[in-house]
Structure formats: C-alpha cells, structure tokens
Design a protein around this nucleic acid. Structure first.
Length: 888
DNA sequence: CGTGGTAGTATTTTT
DNA sequence: TACTACCACG
C-alpha cells in the first residue's frame, strides 16, 4: 500500500471532497456535478477504506456501467495502491453477474451450460412464440411484407421489462392488479368526465378526488411499484391545484388527454383499460419467450441480471455468501441505474448486520441522467435517502473544469428542470463554483445563421482559425444531438484539411461490396431451385458488379440476346464467345452446386476469391491448380489489390473491417451449428425485416492529433478546452419523443425516453459542461426543406441565438472576405471516405482476428503487413498522410 | 385549387 | 404517435 501517494493526492482535495473520502461507514450519496473530480474521489475512498480498516481488497466491490469506466477505475487504483488494485472487485453490473454465475453455477440453469444469443437469434425465438398466437390476439397482426407488426416492439418491451427487474409472473400480477383498479375507476369516471370540463365543475372534481383517494388498491407484488391509483390521484390532485389557481381548464384538458380515452362504445374510460389486452398478451409472450430461450440453452444480456436477482432472492445461502464477501460497495454513475440493477444492489447490501445502513457509496449527478431510454430510473438517485436510513449526502460544489461563465450558463439551463434533487431535498445546493478551471481567457459565443451549410462553414472556419492560433486539435470537440449532423459537418472540416476523430456506427449490410456478396448468395440459392427465371433476375446486377470489370456493352448484349432468343441468361453466358463470360458462368454454376453441401465460410471465401486452406499453399501451387479449369473470383484482387489500397486506403480498410464484422456476426449466428448459404440469406433478411443494423464501430481518424466529433451522449464524462455545440434549436435539442406501439401503464417504471422537458435540459446541460474555456453555440434558422427552426428556449432572450445581429453581421463580413471558402466541392461523408482520407483503426482489432481466425490467408494481407512493418497504424501515420490528397 | 385520405418515416447507446 | 409528402377527388 502506497500510503504516501494517497496522502499526496488527498491533500489536493477540497474539504467536501475530503469529507466524501473520509465517510467510510454507512450509506453515502455523493452528488458530483460536472468536473467535480468524481473518479478521483472514488479511488481515494477505496484506498482510504484499506488504510483505515482491516478490510481486504477483495471485500470491496466497485460497480460501473461500461467496461471503459471499469478500466479507468482500475488504472487509477493501480497508481494509488499498486497490485492490491487487482484484488479489488471492479465490475460492470453485467460482468459482476457473469462472475457470480460462473462461481456458483449450481444456482443457475441447473448447472447447465448456457450461451448468449445475438439479437437475431432472439428475434427468431420470439417469432416462434408469435407463431403460436391465435389470430385474434392483439399482438398477432401481420403485414404481408414486414411480418409481425409488434415483433420488434415486443422484443424491446420484454427487454425493458427485464431492465425494470420484472419477471413474467411479477409483470402479470401488476397488470392483474391494475385491471381491478381500472374497473373501479371506470365506474367512477363516467359521472364527471363524460361531459366537457368546465370551471364550475372544480368543486365536483374535488369531491371526486376525495372519494377516489379513499379507494384501497390491491397490494403491490413489489415494494417499489406503486398502485395505479397512486399515480392517478396524485397527478389529478396536482392538475386540479393548478387549474383552480389559474382558474383555467387547460391543465385538466391536458391531463384528460393523457389519462382518459373513449372505448369502442364511446364511453369514457381510463386509457389503460384499452391497453389491457395487449399487456396481457405481452405477459404471456414474455413468459413463453423465456421458456423457449431456456429450452434452447440461450440467455441474453438482460437475463444475466434477472437470473442473479432471482437466485439471490430465493437462495439465502448464496445471498449470505455475497453479503459476507462484499462489505464495502461503491457504485459509479448512480443516476444511470435501472430497477434491475437497483434490486440486485439491494439484495447484496441487505445484510442483517447492516441494519438498513449498508456501507454503500453511490456517486452520481441527477442532472446528468441521460440514459432513460436504457431503462435508467432517475428516481433511484432521488430516492436514495428514503431507501437507506440516515444516508449522508455530500454535494460537491467545486468545478475544476470550466470558467464561471460556462458554469453559470449551464446552471441557468439546468435550473429550469423540475424533477431535480436540489428541489426535493432542502440541503442540496448545486451552485457550482469554478475552482481554477479558468486559466486563460474564456468566452461564450452565440452565432445564428440562415442555413445549416453556413453554420458548418463558420465552424470549420473558426476551428481553422483556432488551430492557426496554436490550439491543439485534440482539445477541440464538436458536439451534436445526433450522428446525422456530425456526418454532415465532416466534409466541411475535410475541405479545410482539419483532421477529425469520429467514432461512427456503420451498417455493414449497407456496404456495397457486402451487398455484392449477399446478391450472389441469393442468386446461388435461386439457381439451386427449379425456378431459373428468378435466377435470371439477379444476373444483370451481378454482371455489373465492378470487380468483374465487364464492359457495360457486353452485359447489354447478353440482355438483348436473352430477350430475343428467350433463353436464360446463364445459357447465353455459357455459349458466349467471350471467354471471361463463360468462365464466370461456370464459376457461378460450380459455386451453386458446392453451396448445397459446403459450409458458408468456404462459399464466401470463393465469392471473395480468397484462397481457402488449412495448410498454407504457395502462390505457384494456387496458380497450378486453378489455371486450367476454373477462374478465381477477381473480387479480392479488385478490392484488396495493392493498387486499391494505395488509391483509396480509407475505403479499403473500411471494407476490410466490414467484412470482418460480417463474417464474425455470421459465425455467432446459430451458435455452434454449421451454416449453409440459406442461413446467410435468412440472416440478412431478418436484419432487413426488423430494420436491425449490423454495426461496425469505426473510428474515422484522419491524423494523430484531431478534432473530436461526438454526440452529446458519447461526450458524457469527457472534457475539452473548446466545444462547439451544433444546432441550438428547439427542433433539435427539444424535439418530440419516439413513439412506441406498446405503452406501459403509469405505475411501471418504464417510460419512453426523452419525452419530458427535463430530459432535454439534461442532455443539453451535458453538452455545455464539456467545455473548459471556449464555448461556441450556433444555430440556423431555416431547415433542410425550408422548415423554420426556432431558437433554443433553454437560452434566455439575452442569449438569443437568432437575434444576435451583431454576430451575424460580423460573420457575413467574414464569409465575404473568403469567397473561395463558400461553396466549393463539399460533398458527403461517403465521398470523403472514398477519396484519400485514411482510416485508422487499432491494428490488433482490425487485422489480428482476420489473420488468426478467418481463413483469408491471402498473400496480399501478408504483403500489407510486410509493407507496414510497424503495423498498419504506424504505416498510416508515417506514410499515408503524405499521400496525395484529393483536390478540393 | 383546396380537401381529405393514406402511406411512409422518424433518436440517443451499453452489456 | 405525429408529421409530411403525395395522390385522387370534387
């Protein structure tokens, strides 16, 4: 234990931070606003527990949400307590559950071996359940092409239920209770809500409320789930207060919209009664899905938590063992806990010895809760004090990141929020004060533009200027609400030769070259069937794939011949004088026959033209064996040739990465069983039908030092000297929520994300508080299709983005100064990628799997590695950046 | 040329 | 769910 290092770092803390580190016993909630040194406190507190008590490192449990957060935590601890850090249990919630399942297999799945199911398999299992639904089941509706309409929504509804920690049985009993309550309310409602509400009815409504409040709801199956009437009466009481105060029916009308509806007979009822049938069906589908998954030996991510919760609640021995082991528990990002995680936590913490006051430290910030859509329940942090007796609450008030100006603006925004800890608890004051984060001159700039294009141009211009002034690119970030906007701005930055670092998700299945493989696979299947007609439909497309390098004229000639002679394309190709065409025909026929018996990987290898062999063969041998009868697909040579790499390295590596993801996903699919070409097509079809994307996370990194492009969600926890927040408009940051086909009753802790003003405020707050010194807020007034955008109402009139005429004039002058910068060849991000922009990804992540696992042991890859010497990354950094850039 | 019906389409991200 | 684009119809 390096207590010296501890002392040194402890001394740097302010008094509140010290108090958090020193409070070791009992429940403690640390409210850590942006830039308040949260991670440092967590690690110092762990060290302090080890110093002050005789606790062993293995008796401390740290729970995080992401792997990277866990890694950061471990790293910090390593510096502090060296090798002891490895003995502290640092887990994500999921990793913790995996660990428990592995260490106590006898409590899980009867000790049987289970493996995780990918989303596609999950959907297939669920579809199996749907097939057993009767035709009049509310979830069984189908669309001729899209299949079951509710399939995807049911899938996510089940996931949400699991995240809320509800088993099928518990969910069922919740709706059953609700049904009883609904019956009662429906009877009462008619008398008063059948007619239009009028001011004169307020006293009547009061009476109604009084009567209804006396109703005794059936007791809840779970302590944290209230009755429906609790929410009903509570919200009505609030609305009624408001209505009487302003003498207006408006709030009541809004409330009626939300709670009431007319049934098929035109009678006014609780909205929930119309949803009831769907929910009952959902409960039954949920149960069957679980059973089927179990029977097949599958689990999904959500199950891991649910299984451990189940085991801990039913097995005292297991619960005791874990409670004994983990005497000190620390939870990071507490505002992001969902109810399943909360239940798990309560189970580990409820050791009788603690008498309701566990040694639990939760760190979080309710103002930065932006993961509601993942089931996070902000109520968990808001209710901490009620949950644990005599919990201490420490609010950190020093911000070591930003200038006071930036903090003030951020506070100004977030204080508009309603459901905040600061409002709930009397002694929580979150007035952040800047503490030394304001070195250098800080500034906040508001700029309004007419169009997005001008906004992008301005930002590119401004970044260029800052870089010229000597600011490092890596200290600048552009933050947007969604990826679309970031993709839009990339070409503008590229045009000014600004290097960018952008982690984007790409749908592998939309890659044109992956599409080519898929089309060929579809063709091979149709060829194997009797309907050759269908096969003909694919050939025009296949022959025009660029890698064959067949002239258009040739394709056209075959087409002409086919329609004239009414023979199939394939027979014309076989009879063609063009040797290449006959070879391709033979190649495809041969492949089609092989695809009937051979596994998919071999077929893909042949389509791609990769040489397949477990034993390395030399180039010569390959030539010898293939030259006299069959051609090898030119696919590989065309897309992976050295020339292609030299010309378009970005595209080259992007495709290599896509191919890897594609092959890997296929291998994960149907875990363990041998896949045929049909499975590939099914795999792709299921993706398309359910609009699932097969994501490849690419880092578009165009230089060692680069400007970071991020969504607000990804930006959480990071900081930058200078931050540009894109599109400060209501339509962007305060837009409408995303609709769901299945909605849950009000008493379930499952709410659609982003539908309250608070959600919007928090997200924008996170974006603002990333900035240390310079903050640029920009907006534009006219959207893509001429839609008028409104200024972001979070910012007050003095901060009005659109009316800041001065800035606009200055800007116009600026743009006039540089007419050449206006317009130009700004294209799309795809074009940027396909020109000369290098694309760098971690060498090991990108290449090692291909070399080790996938049998693409082709020479070019070795060449690539040889050329690279120090690995592709070094190569790209040293050489590629000097490659001639595309002229703009 | 206005109206009404309807089909199509929309976020954020982790394990 | 909520908006828009589009088309048919009067």
């Amino acid at each position: 234990m390096k207590s010296l290092e501890f002392t040194r770092r402890y001394k740097k803390l302010d008094s509140l931070q010290k108090k958090a580190v020193d409070t070791i016993e009992g429940p403690l909630l640390v409210i850590a606003g942006p830039g308040s040194g949260k991670t440092e406190i967590l690690s110092l507190r762990v060290a302090n527990i080890l110093l002050k008590t005789d606790t062993s490192p293995s008796n401390i449990l740290c729970l995080t949400f992401t792997d990277s957060a866990a890694a950061t935590m471990r790293q910090r601890l390593l510096n502090l307590i060296s090798s002891d850090a490895y003995r502290v249990s640092i887990f994500t919630f999921h990793a913790f559950c995996t660990d428990v399942i592995e260490r106590f297999p006898e409590y899980f799945y009867g000790g049987a071996n289970f493996h995780s199911a990918d989303p596609i398999t999950q959907l297939e299992v669920l579809e199996g359940v749907f097939k057993t639904l009767s035709y009049d089941d509310p979830l069984s509706k189908t669309h001729p092409e899209q299949g079951y309409i509710y399939l995807k929504d049911t899938h996510s509804a089940i996931s949400n239920l699991k995240k809320a920690g509800l088993t099928p049985k518990e969910f069922f009993s919740v709706i059953k209770n609700n049904e009883k309550e609904i019956e009662f309310f429906n009877k009462e409602l008619i008398s008063i809500f059948s007619e239009r509400t009028h001011r004169s009815q307020f006293p009547l409504l009061r009476k109604f409320l009084k009567r209804v409040e006396k109703y005794k709801a059936p007791s809840s199956p779970l302590p944290h789930i209230h009755s429906l009437s609790f929410y009903f009466t509570d919200s009505l009481a609030k609305v009624l207060d408001e209505a009487e105060e302003n003498s207006s029916t408006k709030p009541l009308t809004v409330w009626k919209e939300k709670w009431l509806a007319k049934d098929e007979h035109g009678i006014i009822v609780l909205k929930d009664s119309t949803l009831l049938l769907k929910l009952y069906s959902l409960a039954s589908v949920y149960e069957q899905y679980m059973e089927k998954m179990y029977a097949l030996g599958y689990y999904d991510f959500d199950d891991m938590l649910l299984e451990v919760i189940k085991a801990l609640s039913s097995n005292e021995t297991l619960r005791y063992e874990l409670q004994e082991k983990f005497q000190y528990i620390l939870v990071d990002e507490f505002q992001d806990t969902n109810d399943a995680q909360m239940r798990l936590l309560n189970l580990i913490v409820s050791h009788p010895v603690n008498e309701g006051r566990p040694n639990l430290m939760a760190v979080g910030d309710d103002d930065q809760a932006i993961y509601k859509f993942q089931g996070a329940q902000i109520d968990n942090i808001l209710r901490f004090k009620e949950e644990y007796r005599d919990a201490q609450i420490i609010t950190l008030t020093s911000n070591y990141r930003s200038t006071q100006d930036i903090i003030d603006l951020a506070l100004h925004v977030i204080q508009k929020g309603e459901n905040r800890l600061e409002r709930r608890l009397p002694n929580v004051h979150k007035a952040l004060v800047s503490a030394g984060g304001d070195k250098g001159k800080g500034e906040i700039l508001y700029c309004g533009f007419v169009s997005a294009r001008e906004e992008y141009e301005y930002i590119a211009h401004e970044i260029k200027k800052l870089l010229k002034e000597g600011l490092s690119p890596s200290s600048i970030a552009v933050i947007a609400r969604k990826h679309e906007y970031l993709e839009n701005i990339v070409p503008y930055l590229y045009q000014k030769k600004i290097t960018v670092n952008y982690e984007r998700q790409q749908n592998v299945l939309r890659d044109s070259r992956i599409q080519e493989i898929i089309v060929i696979a579809r063709f091979l299947i149709s060829l194997g069937r009797k309907d050759k007609v269908e096969a003909d439909e694919f050939l025009p497309e296949i022959l025009s794939f660029p890698f064959w390098e067949i002239p258009r004229k040739t394709v056209w000639e075959i087409s002409l011949e086919a329609s004239k002679s009414r023979r199939s394309w394939l027979s014309i190709m076989l009879a063609s004088k063009d040797k290449k065409i006959t070879q391709i025909a033979h190649f495809l026929i041969d492949l089609s026959v092989r695809s009937l018996s051979e596994p998919i990987e071999y077929i893909i290898d042949s389509i791609v033209g990769a040489h397949v062999s477990l034993i390395e063969e030399s180039e010569d041998e390959i030539k010898k064996s293939s030259s006299h009868k069959k051609i090898q697909s030119p696919f590989k040579e065309y897309y992976f040739g050295k020339e292609e790499f030299n010309l378009k390295p970005a595209k080259y590596l992007l495709f290599l990465s896509s191919l890897r993801v594609f092959v890997y996903a296929l291998r994960e699919y149907k875990h363990g069983s041998l896949l045929k070409i049909d499975d590939l097509v099914t795999f792709v079809n299921t993706h398309e039908k359910n609009e699932l994307i097969l994501a490849d996370e690419n880092t578009l990194l165009t230089g060692k030092e680069a400007v970071t492009l991020l969504t607000a969600h990804k930006a959480k926890g990071l900081e930058f000297d200078t931050v540009f927040v894109l599109h400060c408009q209501n339509e962007v940051w305060s837009g409408k929520g995303f609709p769901r086909k299945i909605s849950f009753p009000a008493n379930l802790p499952i709410t659609p994300a982003g539908d309250t003003n608070d959600d919007h405020l928090r997200l924008f707050f996170v974006a603002l508080t990333r900035a240390k010194r310079l903050l640029f807020l920009s907006s534009h007034a006219v959207g893509e299709r001429g839609k008028i955008m409104s200024k972001l109402s979070f910012l007050t009139a003095e901060n009005d983005v659109h009316t800041n005429k001065k800035v606009e004039e200055v800007l116009q002058a600026k743009l006039d100064e540089h007419p050449s910068e206006k317009g130009g060849n700004v294209t799309s991000i795809e074009n940027v990628l396909s020109t000369a922009l290098p694309f760098i990804k971690d060498e090991k992540a990108l290449l090692k799997p291909i070399l080790e696992d996938y049998t693409m042991s082709v020479t070019h890859l070795n060449n690539f590695l040889n050329v690279v010497r120090g690995g592709p990354q070094t190569f790209l950094e040293q050489n590629l950046l000097r490659f001639p850039q595309a002229k703009t």
